[in-house]
Write a protein that binds this DNA or RNA. Structure first.
Length: 398
DNA sequence: AGGTATTCACATGAAACTATTCTCTGAGTTAGG
DNA sequence: TAACTCAGAGAATAGTTTCATGTGAATACCTGT
């Protein structure tokens, strides 16, 4: 294989891409399409900060890939710039609560915020109260309006409860000079339902809901980005429509649509073609799915892999799998690979988690006199099964 | 036949435990004056 | 005597285990006809 060829292909000017960045999730386009209403509403809600008043707390709902984060950051950025020109004191802190080991617990969230504000704090060892105090002292030194954006806040609450939100909203009322308002962003539309009523009422003073994009809107977005990302004329007839249709079918996720477009482009490039075709879209869709599955499997902890492997094996034998059966075989596997088996209680949870991740499907069924179990099925597509088994065997040391 | 009561095989929940990582504190130790 | 070392107490967190309680329909068991 001539590596030089490959490097040349990638370093030289691409026949396909002009600016690949434009299709990446973190890319911030200048124009945000089909979100005028939402942008205006958010801006209107946050605007009082320019006068040094505290904006209402704001809650933003919408499924993944509906542009929530993008819009909020867009408004925030402009607000901050505007405030700087007018010598206002608006500070914006953006935190993504989902990031593992960054901001997914109260302590870490506060540590992260303090870090953003320029104060370093040890990663563990201190009582959380100390951090609340540090945060309080730090922001109350100046009479700023602070807008705290908590992205994927549902993840945080799911993991560590809503105490943090309560405490944060209380901090505001204790501040003497500064003002703190909170913008929460959530993928889960029902998120606020099981929140402490006090937190709920104080946090969702205002709400903005982001509806999913429809196929036409996604088409516009794709076209806009494609104009930046691709060389002229490389996109074949109907390619964009097709991608838009695919993603509209699955709740209008623009992020996935853009990813699909990018992968299609990459396939074209790798195959040294000079046009994106409909067939490539199909191929890209399949590739995207495969990659996602393989990645999530590789990222599983060992015990999860063991559970998954047993289900695959049992599933292949066409046996009806329930929790008990699975657990017995799992134990056998554990002794084979010399791993201490977990309790059934725990395995039951692991099954539920694998179900959530879509690697298998588990339905609880009642068989009356014969008890109650989960009927477990492996949902990994057949074409990947051999590959997956190989990976699992290797990782488990079989 | 119709109506209860049981029973199975787990599910689901809550609390307690274990291990790891890291800070803080104060007692004891050391080196220099 | 000031600086340093080091063990022990506390925290936060993840991942479990232990203990306790819940579930819902297929059966077993009555009951009166």
């Amino acid at each position: 294989m001539d590596l030089k060829n490959i490097f040349e292909k990638f370093s030289g000017k691409s026949k396909i891409f002009r600016n690949r960045e434009a299709l990446q999730a973190r890319y911030h386009p200048e124009k945000i399409l089909h979100r005028d209403k939402e942008l205006e509403k958010i801006a209107a809600i946050l605007a009082p900060s320019l006068k040094g008043e505290k904006p209402s707390n704001l809650f933003i709902y919408g499924k993944t890939g509906t542009g929530k984060t993008l819009c909020v950051l867009h408004v925030a950025k402009q607000l901050e710039e505007f405030a700087r020109e007018k010598k206002g004191n608006v500070r914006i802190i953006y935190v993504n609560c989902k990031l593992k080991r960054v901001a997914d617990t109260p302590y870490r969230l506060l540590a992260h915020i303090l870090h953003e504000l320029g104060q370093e704090v040890p990663s563990t060892g201190l009582p959380t109260d100390e951090l609340y105090k540090a945060f309080y002292d730090l922001i109350d030194r100046r009479s700023d309006v602070i807008i705290l954006i908590l992205d994927e806040i549902d993840q945080l609450v799911a993991k560590s409860g809503d105490d943090i939100l309560y405490n944060l909203s209380r901090i505001d009322s204790e501040l003497k000079k500064a003002r703190l308002s909170i913008v929460g962003i959530s993928n889960d539309l029902l998120f606020a339902e099981n929140l402490d009523p006090r937190v709920k009422s104080s946090l969702s003073e205002e709400e903005v809901v982001f509806p999913p994009y429809n196929a036409l809107q996604i088409k516009d977005i794709l076209e806009e980005r494609a104009r930046i990302a691709f060389q002229q004329g490389v996109i074949g007839e109907g390619v964009i429509q097709k991608i838009a249709a695919i993603s509209a079918r699955s709740h209008g996720d623009a992020r996935r649509a853009l990813e699909l477009l990018r992968i299609t482009g990459e396939l074209a490039e790798r195959k040294d073609m000079n046009k994106l075709t409909l067939e490539l879209v199909d191929e890209a869709e399949e590739k995207m799915e495969s990659e996602n599955i393989i990645e999530t499997i590789k990222a599983q902890p060992q015990q999860y892999k063991a559970v998954l492997y047993t289900t695959i094996i049992l599933n292949e034998k066409n046996m009806e799998i329930n929790t008990g059966e699975l657990y017995n075989h799992y134990r056998r596997l554990c002794s084979q690979i010399k791993v201490r088996p977990l309790t059934q209680r725990r395995v039951s949870d692991i099954i539920a988690e694998l179900d959530m991740q879509g690697l298998l499907s588990a339905k609880t069924i009642n068989r009356g006199r014969y008890g109650r179990t989960k009927s477990i099925e492996c949902t990994i597509p057949l074409r990947l099964l051999e590959h997956v088994k190989k990976i699992l065997r290797e990782d488990l040391g079989l």
